[in-house]
Amino acid sequence: MKRYTLYLLTLIALGFTACQQEVAQEEDSCCAKPVAAGELPDGTSSLAIPTAGLTDMSLYQLESDWQNQNAEALKLQEFRGKVQLVAMVYTHCGYACPRIIADLKRIEMGLDQYKREDIGIVLVTMDPARDTPERLLDFAKSNNLDPKRWTLLTSEQDNIRELAALLNMKYKVELDGEISHSNIITVLNENGEIIHQAEGLGVEPDETVNAIKGLLQKI
């Protein structure tokens, strides 16, 4: 199954390169230098036989198990059917992650004309040891994240690293417990395919907003 994971990675990379819009240059992370490009996790979780109606480039092919901030078990396939904004953060981050959330809120403001059920926003923790569902729920409440639109996810470390690799997200846990990481906001279409990525912090939201609007007009 690891071979199939690498196959999916290659397909996503090639497909996204072909259609990717120009994005802002990525900034350094809050904590340290990002993990070297090309570093892949070991022991990734297995993939199921492709789900009916999904292409080989869909992240929803992953069969890993996740929990949301309400401690509810779910699969990534459950996000199918609407446009999703995805970012990886951790709640003890003092600089970059709050800025990523602020950037997501700016994008959200640019989509005010759409209903809550039209767009989802998914935050995936990079720190499952500390970011329990209870911690994620407290974090969501303290940041005024609308539970009807925002979902916070945790899982086993291998599952998180597998998803990070497919999102081209690099991160590394340092000796002091801080996490050095790249800063990427990803737009998925209703079938879990990567359509657009914005790299860096404080990136103007217009391109991302327009990418989402284009998707919503097709649904």
Rank of each mutant, 00 (worst) to 15 (best):
V124T: 02
Y7L: 12
Q113V: 12
G214N: 14
L9C: 05
G200V: 07
A73W: 06
Q84N: 13
N189T: 02
N183S: 14
D42M: 09
A165G: 04
T154C: 01
E72W: 00
E78Q: 11
K82T: 08
L8E: 14
L11T: 11
V83S: 01
Q217R: 14
P34N: 04
R161W: 10
G110D: 02
D206G: 06
L54F: 05
E22R: 11
E190R: 12
D118A: 14
G43A: 03
Q21R: 13
R130V: 09
M1C: 11
G43Q: 05
G81I: 02
G110S: 03
R106A: 11
M57Y: 11
F139V: 07
G94F: 10
C93Q: 06
K82F: 03
N70P: 00
L54N: 03
I212C: 02
L163H: 06
D56Y: 11
Q157Y: 11
T91N: 07
M126C: 10
T5F: 15
A140H: 05
A165Q: 10
K170R: 15
E39S: 12
E22M: 06
V83Y: 00
L74F: 04
T208H: 05
L166N: 04
V86H: 00
L111S: 07
T55Q: 09
C30I: 11
Q67N: 07
T17C: 12
H92C: 09
